[in-house]
Amino acid sequence: MTVQTEQETGKNEEWEPKIIAFLCNWCSYAGADLAGVSRIQYPPNIRIVRVPCSGRVNPYFIIKSLTDGWDGVVISGCHPGDCHYISGNLVARRRFAILNELLEFFGIEPDRVNFMWASAAEGERFAVLIRKATEKVKALGPNKKFEKKW
């Protein structure tokens, strides 16, 4: 598998980004549920994976997502201080600060990977943040940096 260098990402008006979202069970997944219960509408670009805590998300998952063709990744956890497992979200935050630098070094646009906090009571906020992340990824165009050669 090779990484394509500086390729023009074709921005197609019809194209919609596909974003994988890792949501922590206690806050963000519940917040997404609340958005559903409240019928708050947001663009249909994310696919949700439930994890016990944002701390569970290993950087491998993010890189695997990008190499497998997902246009963007969202990781969402509890607000600092509110983590159900005390500090998992802070561990996650530190991890992604470093991962961001690594991604930039690889030539992958950092805006493809979005880290956010949303609590179980914040259905509206969840929808707003997803909308923002979707717009950011959409502006970058489809993820064409990885192409399987064999």
């Binding site: 549920d33 958005a35 559903g36 708050i40 509408q41």
Partner: peptide
């Protein structure tokens, strides 16, 4: 989850809801 995370939040976009 194809209700809270799909049909309930994309009520006016059935194609998008179906893809999800």
């Amino acid at each position: 989850n194809i209700r809270e995370h799909s049909t309930w939040v994309h009520m006016r976009e059935p194609e998008g809801a179906y893809e999800i």
